[in-house]
Amino acid sequence: MAERILRKPAGASRLVFALVCGWLTLLLVVPLLALVGAVVQDRSEVLRTLLSAEARNALLLTLGVALACIACNGVFGVAGALVLVRQRFWLRRVLDALIDMPLALSPVMTGLAFLLVFGRSGVLRPVLDGLGVEIAFAWPSVLLATLFVTLPFTLREVALVLEEVGDSEEQAAATLGASPWQTFWRITLPNLRGGLIIGTTLTTARALGEFGAVLVVGGSIANRTQTATTFIHAAIEERQEPAAFGMALILAAAAILLLLFMQGLDPTQKRSPAHGD
């Protein structure tokens, strides 16, 4: 759509503009500044707690889990989008509905569901005991829960792009004698780049910030299953406010960087997870 000529606000609309700016400032900007202020005020204590082994291990676990989620969701997102957009079969609608479930569930319920599968009295307990694998209250549970909550993002973004580009280029490649693999690597995947970048950004943001599910299923054990967010939670409970604020500022800064990256992308590619159909 052509860029529309926008008018300068006048009269009552100027008032609405002022109210919108005031609201956004009070709700978003001022609390952010307050967080920065709280960290600056207690900087030596914040620095000391953030340099502790617990904080470092929490950040490392969060980063590792986020990277694993990016990789898994990249592969699954492309595969899943190809199946959902290109294939027609009786299970398709069921899969389509299931993929959105992580967005509908409260994170605590996600954690509980995984606990009921992998936990002490979980349904897979006999199998896991037989294999000698520990999942609940160990790092794999953190990974599994985060994979669950980030499942839809890459897939949905890739699917949108896939629907838009259609398959004429691929048919042309096949007609010209390209093998399915060649077509995939040279045509399909490059076409999906935009969707993959946005989906990966959304996945990263969610993986870095997931809290409820990893708290329930991981148990927030320091140096073992504690992530950046559950570190904050533990710090609040122990009344270690500087540690909580410091870690919160790190996560907020990461979120803002990801947001700025998204804003910098080509506006025609820009989409938000709140996007409907």
Partner: peptide, 20 residues
């Protein structure tokens, strides 16, 4: 700014309110 709450972890959103 409107997209900020989608990027900020919700626990951190709570911490922002506590900080203020």
């Amino acid at each position: 700014l409107v997209d900020l709450p989608l990027a900020i972890p919700t626990l951190v959103a709570g911490m922002l309110i506590l900080a203020l």
